[in-house]
Simulated scan of single mutants.
Amino acid sequence: MTAPRIVHGGGIAAASQRFGGRPEDWLDLSTGINPNPAALPEVDVAAWHRLPDRHRQDAARAAAAGYYGTSGALPLPVPGTQSVIQLLPRFVAAGRRAAVVSPTYGEYARVLENAGVAVDRIAGLNAVSDAHDLVVVVNPNNPDGRLFSREALLDLHRRVAGSGGLLVVDEAFGDMRPEATIAPLAGDNMPGLLVFRSFGKFFGLAGLRLGFVIGEAPVVDRVEDGLGPWAVSGPALTIATGLMTADTTAIRRSIDARKAALESVLAGAGLDIVGGAGLFALVDRADAPAIHEGLCRRHILVRPFDYNARWLRFGLAPDATSDARLAAALAEVTAGR
């Protein structure tokens, strides 16, 4: 039996159909994406005209290696890390199990189970055993921001690799916590480790559908082969090369400022922040479903969770005007108006 599709954030069209209003007039806080996209570098006409030549991929891989600090490996560009999640069942040997540290991004367990892989949703790293051929850790975690230290992940890697398994560390939200990332250590000298990185979240360009995977050559080659030729477009490779070799200080400062503003709004509304990462905050409230619907009726979308009805995830608003709009809406909703 195929598991039902997961309803992710970003569903403005569906929300506007149900609650009214034009999609462009909604305030979308349902995703963990930088609300202020980075300025696009120039993209030459040939990038649009031709299939992506090897030199473009090589340039993007070199830029990503510098950005992620991966001196021992060249990150492989992929059309969003979701595309690689679809390939993960290929890395589980027949009769072996997978473990996903949960709760977390739901596509991991869904894809594996739909492929017939037995999945254990585990609460912590100590629950990993020799029975697990594939282990997935999202770090920082989505949606609660749980963060394991690099030392804890290296210890886990030794255990997983020692039993012939593969540890996947998803660092989609790692750009704001570079000191905790394990990507710089991935490569041929760390067999049994595969790291996922997102491009679109930090740079605010999720529509580009671009990510990177970092690991030992045989595993990365299997990923590349599974995706097929020309998986990433020339314009995407060109944009990544430009932005990942530029100074990102202003982007980081903007995200920090937007996160501080969001936390101020949530605290001012009396909402209890129980977790989060640089691009989102997680709130725990008994009346979370009512708050979600009340905000929708005011054309503001946040992210609810079917597995925990008390949780709401708030992404960053783009500016002070949007902060004020959220604050006013929360004041009305929490007052029962």
Score class of each variant (00 low, 15 high):
residue 3 A to G: 02
residue 6 I to A: 00
residue 7 V to Y: 07
residue 7 V to F: 06
residue 14 A to H: 14
residue 15 A to R: 15
residue 15 A to Y: 09
residue 15 A to T: 06
residue 21 G to N: 08
residue 23 P to N: 04
residue 34 N to C: 09
residue 42 E to G: 08
residue 42 E to Y: 10
residue 43 V to C: 01
residue 53 D to W: 11
residue 62 A to F: 02
residue 66 G to Y: 04
residue 81 T to D: 03
residue 82 Q to K: 14
residue 86 Q to M: 09
residue 91 F to C: 09
residue 98 A to R: 13
residue 100 V to S: 05
residue 102 S to K: 14
residue 102 S to F: 06
residue 103 P to R: 10
residue 105 Y to K: 14
residue 107 E to Q: 15
residue 108 Y to M: 07
residue 110 R to L: 01
residue 116 G to T: 04
residue 118 A to C: 11
residue 124 G to C: 13
residue 125 L to C: 02
residue 127 A to K: 14
residue 132 H to E: 01
residue 137 V to E: 01
residue 140 P to C: 00
residue 143 P to L: 00
residue 145 G to Y: 02
residue 147 L to A: 07
residue 152 A to W: 03
residue 154 L to W: 11
residue 154 L to F: 12
residue 166 L to G: 06
residue 176 M to N: 14
residue 179 E to I: 02
residue 182 I to S: 02
residue 187 G to N: 10
residue 192 G to L: 03
residue 194 L to N: 08
residue 201 K to D: 15
residue 204 G to P: 09
residue 213 V to R: 05
residue 216 E to M: 07
residue 217 A to G: 12
residue 219 V to K: 08
residue 219 V to Y: 05
residue 221 D to S: 14
residue 228 G to H: 07
residue 242 G to I: 12
residue 250 A to Y: 06
residue 253 R to Y: 00
residue 254 S to P: 10
residue 258 R to P: 08
residue 259 K to T: 15
residue 266 L to W: 00
residue 281 A to K: 02
residue 288 A to V: 09
residue 301 L to F: 02
residue 305 F to C: 01
residue 313 R to L: 08
residue 318 P to R: 12
residue 319 D to E: 10
residue 324 A to M: 05
residue 327 A to D: 11
residue 329 A to P: 11
residue 331 A to W: 01
residue 332 E to I: 03
